[in-house]
C-alpha cells in the first residue's frame, strides 16, 4: 500500500482580481521507504502541491482532488485533526534553513516542543530524544547544541537541525522541499547522503522536491516531472533520467552541466521562460518552447498516459525507443 496517494490534485490561489490555478490535476503515489523525486522549474507548482497537503496554503485558496495518507483523506480535513498528523506522521523540511528555524528559540526547544505534544514525552525524555536526533544527523556536541540558537550554526548544520526536527516523531513520510538549494555543493552532498541513510535506517518515505535533476539522479527511486502545474512524465529514475521521452524532461537534462561530457556537449538552455500562473498556453502548456511541437499541441491538452515503462503526457513522443 502506498504511503501517499494523490489524485487529480488541483490548487487555486487567490490573487487580486480572481483565482489563479497553480496545480492543475496531478496524480502520484509514494511507496514506503522510497525517495520520490519531483522535478520542475520554479513556478511549476511543486511546493504549492505539498503545502496543500499540510493545509499551509494562504487563506481563501481552493484545493480539489484527493490525497490519501495512511488511509486518511488529507484534503478538506479539519485543521484540528490535521494538526495531529502534521509534524508527527507527515513532516516537512523547507528550502531555506536560514529562515525556517525561529531565530529566537533554542535548538532544543524547536526540537522537542512537537515531540512532547505528539508523543506525550516529559521534558527529560524529550531532551534525550533531541540529543539522539542531533547525533543522528551528525551535529557535534549535541547537548551543547540544544542550548544554542540557530544563528550559532552554519547553513548546512541548520538544515541538519531542520531535518532532525522533521524526523523527531519518526514520520512515515518526509517532504523535503529543495532541501539543498540554499547550500554549498559540498554541504549539499552531505545533506543528500544524510537523507539517504535516514530513509534506509528508519524505513522513511521521502518526497524530494528539486529543480536539480542531478540531485534526483543520485538518490531518487522514482521521478515525476512537473511543468506548469501538471505532471508531464513520470517513472523509475533510470528510465526517466537516462532515456527521457518528454521533450521538456529532455530539455531539462540537456541544460544540466555534465562533468564527464563537458567538452563535447555544450549546455543547451531551454528557449523562452516557464509560463506564469494565469497565463498558461492553450493545449500542451510546453508547446511554445517545444522544438517538436505539431499543430495539435496548440489545441489538445495532452493526457498523462501509461506508455511501456512510464507515464507520459506527450502524444508526439519524439524520443520513443
Amino acid at each position: 500500500m502506498s504511503v501517499l496517494a494523490v489524485e487529480s490534485l488541483r490548487v487555486k490561489l487567490p490573487i487580486p482580481g480572481g483565482d489563479v490555478t497553480i496545480v492543475d490535476g496531478v496524480d502520484y503515489d509514494v511507496q514506503p521507504g522510497e525517495v520520490f523525486g519531483i522535478a520542475g522549474e520554479s513556478g511549476s507548482g511543486k511546493t504549492i502541491s505539498m503545502l496543500a497537503l499540510l493545509g499551509l496554503l494562504p487563506e481563501h485558496s481552493t484545493v480539489e482532488g484527493t490525497a490519501l495518507f495512511a488511509g486518511k483523506e488529507l484534503i478538506g480535513m479539519p485543521r484540528r485533526e490535521l494538526r495531529d498528523i502534521a509534524g508527527r506522521d507527515l513532516a516537512m523540511v523547507f528550502q531555506d534553513p536560514f529562515t525556517s528555524l525561529h531565530p529566537m528559540l533554542t535548538v532544543g526547544r524547536q526540537l522537542s516542543e512537537h515531540v512532547r505534544r505528539h508523543l506525550h514525552l516529559d521534558r527529560h525524555a524529550a531532551e534525550e530524544r533531541a540529543v539522539e536526533l542531533l547525533e543522528d544527523v551528525r551535529i557535534p556536541d549535541p547537548r551543547a547544541a540544544l542550548r544554542a540558537y540557530p544563528h550559532h550554526f552554519s547553513g548546512g548544520m541548520r538544515q541538519r537541525i531542520a531535518i532532525a526536527i522533521a524526523l523527531a516523531c519518526r514520520p512515515k513520510l518526509l517532504i523535503a522541499d529543495e532541501p539543498t538549494t540554499a547550500l554549498d555543493v559540498t554541504v549539499q552532498a552531505g545533506i543528500l547522503r544524510l537523507l539517504d541513510r535516514l530513509r534506509r535506517e528508519q524505513d522513511l518515505a521521502v518526497i524530494l522536491i528539486t529543480h536539480d535533476l542531478g540531485v534526483l539522479s543520485s538518490i531518487a527511486d522514482r521521478v515525476s516531472v512537473f511543468y506548469a502545474g501538471r505532471v508531464v512524465e513520470s517513472g523509475a529514475r533510470g528510465d526517466v533520467l537516462q532515456h527521457p521521452r518528454h521533450p521538456y524532461t529532455r530539455a531539462l537534462l540537456d541544460a544540466l552541466p555534465h562533468p564527464e561530457a563537458a567538452k563535447e556537449r555544450p549546455l543547451v538552455a531551454i528557449g523562452g521562460s516557464p509560463p506564469t500562473p494565469g497565463h498558461i498556453p492553450s493545449g500542451c502548456s510546453f508547446h511554445t518552447r517545444c522544438t517538436h511541437a505539431v499543430d495539435s499541441c496548440r489545441v489538445d491538452v495532452p493526457e498523462l498516459r501509461a506508455v511501456s515503462d512510464r507515464r507520459l503526457a506527450c502524444p508526439v513522443d519524439p524520443f520513443s525507443a
Binding site: 551528525r138 551535529i139 557535534p140 551543547a144 547544541a145 544554542a148 540558537y149 550559532h152 550554526f153 552554519s154 548546512g156 548544520m157 541538519r160 554549498d184 555543493v185 559540498t186 554541504v187 549539499q188 552532498a189 552531505g190 543528500l192 547522503r193 544524510l194 539517504d196 541513510r197 534506509r200 536539480d212 535533476l213 542531478g214 540531485v215 539522479s217 543520485s218 538518490i219 533520467l241 537534462l253 544540466l256 552541466p257 555534465h258 562533468p259
Partner: peptide
C-alpha cells in the same frame, strides 16, 4: 549527471563545522 557521491556515511563537511560562541 553524478554531481553527488553516493557513500553512505556522511561526516559534516569542514565548511559545516563552524561553531557557536559563548
Amino acid at each position: 549527471m553524478t554531481t553527488v557521491p553516493t557513500a553512505i556515511d556522511e561526516p559534516p563537511a569542514a565548511s559545516e563545522r563552524r561553531f557557536w560562541r559563548p
